[in-house]
Amino acid sequence: MFDASSNALTVSRSGFTAKSLGGGRRFALQGRKDTLEGVAKAFGLAEAPAMLQSASAGDCTLLRLAPQELFIIAGEAGLPEAVTTYLGTVPNSLVEVSERQVGWTLEGERLRDTLAALSPLDLRTKSFPVGTATRTLFGKADGMLWRTDENSFHLEVWRSFAPYMVAMMDAAALDASW
């Protein structure tokens, strides 16, 4: 049983691990379509990632979570200067949310079964290929899920939901082995 009072916010079960993500910053960037395209160019990308797609630029990853929103996973240095410069010239909303979320790297051969205990998403590779990112519901917690590899996901939830999420993943991973 997960103990909410401990700080061990990881899961390690046979066939499923959730390792805490280290560091990095997060930005929620919203704007009209042209602005998002402009930002992508400032990142050095040909175009903004399509809906539910992701793209990497330097040490930043852009997740298109909504038509008007790019969620940016950045390194400690934050956003490239070209990006902030560009954003100074167009209407947009850039809000740092580095503290809002915590997350895990999820791995293991029972990964899909474990997540399927919590989420109604169809995570078969044909429906949710590598590179796909979305917000969804895990039990009663909103989460942001990004498939980084066939058997590896990046999951973030709002900070106060982390103990719940870990407890749920731990229980689901145990069940998934039966």
């Binding site: 809906m51 539910l52 909504a66 038509p67 109604p120 998403l121 979305t134 969804t136 519901l137």
Partner: peptide, 17 residues
């Protein structure tokens, strides 16, 4: 549980809506 097609995200389960 209904299956609902979000014009932006495609078909998703009703609990998301």
């Amino acid at each position: 549980m209904l299956l609902i097609r979000c014009p932006y995200c495609g078909e998703r389960a009703e609990v998301e809506f």
